[in-house]
Amino acid sequence: MIIEFTLNNEKVKMDVEPTMRVLDLLRNDLGMSSVKEGCGEGECGACVILVDGRAMNSCMLPAGAIVNRSIVTLEGFKHTEQFKVIEAGLLKAGSVQCGFCTPGFVMAIESLLNQNPDPTDEEIKEGLSGNLCRCTGYNMIIKGVRLAIEKGAGLW
């Protein structure tokens, strides 16, 4: 199946197996190594990417479903102002240790703030409930998001 979509603002056209997981497409065919495979079944959030600005689990997303959609991974998001404040907030709060979960968290945080620029702690927790971290606690991540929101006022 020939599909066209944009990846980090660049047009891509390729012949793919329609049932291939977008996770495998991005990692193995397009070199997007920030997209991680944890559980492979929607539970951990390591594979989260943005599709038209919304977080989705790429481990459950078939390639045939991304036709004409805009995909953003950390490789592209890295160059934005939003990324800089999210990264700074997470680092300052000590919520990055091994870093395996971080790309997924960053994409989920961006998706949350796109929808709700001024979340309560409870809303942050709920917004990130699909992302698991083995190393740090939720409190540190919430603190990181809080710092990002303060620093990045007006960005979302």
Partner: peptide, 27 residues
């Protein structure tokens, strides 16, 4: 195939292996 959150998990065959579908798919 709609969102795939049931189908892609039920038919999954592991990392980098295509899920198993016996009929043509319709998105």
């Amino acid at each position: 195939m709609a969102g795939g959150t049931d189908l892609m998990v039920q038919r999954a065959r592991g990392s980098a292996v295509l899920p198993g579908f016996d009929r043509p798919l319709m998105f």
